[in-house]
Every structure is written in C-alpha cells, then in structure tokens.
C-alpha cells in the first residue's frame, strides 16, 4: 500500500477518535493536516488522474471531507461548512461511479440545502436542487429541506418552525435553530411593508418574542429605523427614508437632443 495513503489512513483514524470524543480543537488541527496531505494525491479532483490507488484515495478523501462538513456544523462555523462542502461536492458529482455512493451523501446535501435556506440564498438553493437526480427528492433528508422551502415561500412560517421537531438527522438541529431567525427577519420585512404601525404586543407575537425586552433588543439591533411610541411600533420612518424616485429630466433631455442630432446625421 502506498505510504502516503497509509499515513492519511492513520491520521484519519486519529481524527475520527478525536471527533468521537467531541474534542473539536484537536479535530480541527488534525483535519487541516489531513487536507494538506490530500493535496499530494493526484487522483483527486480536479486532476482525477487514474492511479492504481485512485479508488482508495477517493474514498478516503470523501470520507475526510464528509467528516469535515459534520465537524463544521458541530463547531457552528458556517464558512467552514461552505468551504468543506464545496470541496466535497466534486466527490459526489464528478466521480462518475468510480467509487460507490456514500451513505452520507443525501444527509449532507440536505444539510447544505438547509444552510442555503437559512442564509436566505433561495436562488442557490434551487440551483442545487436542480442538480440533484429525480430519485434523490424521495430521500427523507432532501424532502425535508424541500418542504421547508415550500412552507417558507408560502409564508407558512408556523410549519417551518414546527418542523424542528421532525429533523431527519441530528446535525440538522443547528440549522433549524438558525432558521427561526431567518423566519423572523422575513416577518419583520413583511410587517414593515404591510403595516403603518403595530402594537407592541402584536409585534411581539408576530415576531415570536417572549418578552418586550427581546423585542426592543431586536429592533435596536436590526431595525433602528423603527420607532416605538405610545405602545406601538411605527414603520413609517422606514418608508419615508426610502429615496423617492426623481425624474431624471436632464438625462432625458440630453438623450432626446442626441437622438435629434443623430437623425440629422442620417446620410
């Protein structure tokens, strides 16, 4: 067996042990070592050279990145999640059956969908969805994310929030928590557009805060343009500050004149 592969395998088992212990610091440092070692493998994307150990190498690399993704969820690092997922993706998408499908594939893809939903990157969400094969939609993990998105779009925020109870995989919990915040932002945006003002109680209920204190904090942090007086939240100011569309008269005049001039020039 290739010494490099042996080294990686050994290191990986140490990483897995640390990971199982929930010793995240050790895991992270081991992981970065592993990644560096992986760059030595020519069979990995993007070069995909056909070496004798290709299958082994690809498998172990995929395994490492899958763990990396899960680790990033555990340490609640969204950037790392995205990074690792991007690097993992070619193993799922581009290996063309050189290695068998990973059992973790759909949970991780679903996790990524959920992440996109949380970050409110709906366009990318759909792009990712389109890239999946049709039968993948049957998978519970994927289905969960798709249903969430549908509810989210419909405005059925209740269903979104209640879905937390029915997560298909333990790693999903982290993102489901974050989703509540996303939903709240959506609600705040809608209220701003839909109402001139709202009583504090209603606002509290609407935005799912348990106390006035929390509401106040939220408003000062996220929407400083909202005004609180007489027990009501006023959205008026936010609307006013929107720049009113000015007629670009000078530009229009210039354009018209230049058209006239060009017409003159027609030979």
């Amino acid at each position: 067996m290739d010494p490099k592969l042996v080294e990686v395998t050994q290191l990986f088992s140490r990483f897995k042990a640390a990971f199982a212990r929930n010793d995240f610091d050790t895991s992270v440092s081991l992981l970065s070592q592993l990644k560096v070692l992986l760059t030595k493998f020519p069979s990995l994307p993007p070069s995909f050279q056909q070496t004798p150990n290709a299958v082994e190498e690809l498998k172990i690399a995929r395994d490492i990145y899958e763990h990396a993704v899960v680790l990033s969820v555990k340490i609640e690092d969204q950037d790392a999640f995205e990074r690792d997922f991007c690097q993992l993706k070619p193993y799922y998408m581009d290996t063309c059956g050189i290695i068998p499908q990973s059992p973790e594939e759909y949970p991780i893809l679903g996790l990524n969908l959920l992440r996109l939903l949380v970050q409110n990157r709906i366009a990318e969400f759909h792009t990712e969805l389109e890239l999946l094969p049709v039968n993948a939609l049957e998978n519970a993990c994927i289905k969960h994310a798709v249903e969430l998105e549908q509810s989210f779009m419909e405005g059925a925020y209740n269903r979104v929030l209640s879905a937390r109870q029915a997560v298909p995989h333990e790693t999903y919990v982290y993102f489901m928590d974050l989703l509540a915040k996303t939903v709240r932002d959506e609600l705040a945006g809608c209220s701003e557009k839909g109402y001139d003002y709202m009583s504090i109680t209603e606002a509290k209920q609407m935005l799912m805060f348990s106390s006035d204190q929390e509401l106040h904090e939220y408003i000062t942090e996220e929407h400083p343009e909202w005004e609180i007086k007489d027990g009501c939240v006023f959205f008026q100011k936010a609307k006013e500050t929107q720049p009113c569309k000015e007629i670009p008269s000078l530009q229009v005049i210039n354009q018209t004149l230049s058209y006239a001039r060009e017409l003159e020039r027609i030979v």
Binding site: K35, V36, P45, F48, M93, I98
Partner: peptide, 28 residues
C-alpha cells in the same frame, strides 16, 4: 473506469482558496 472523471465546477478549488493553510492555497 470507463468513464473519465472530470470536474464540473471549480467551486471546490475556489473553496480551497479560503482555507487558512498556505499549502492548500498553493495547491488551489
């Protein structure tokens, strides 16, 4: 291994650029 594997996206490599380790950046 009839089908020759090719990458369909550079996002993986691009993601690698964000890695803190120098070697990874270089590799990317």
């Amino acid at each position: 291994m009839a089908a020759v594997a090719t990458v369909s996206s550079a996002s993986g490599i691009l993601a690698m650029l964000q890695e803190p380790a120098e070697e990874l950046k270089l590799h990317a």
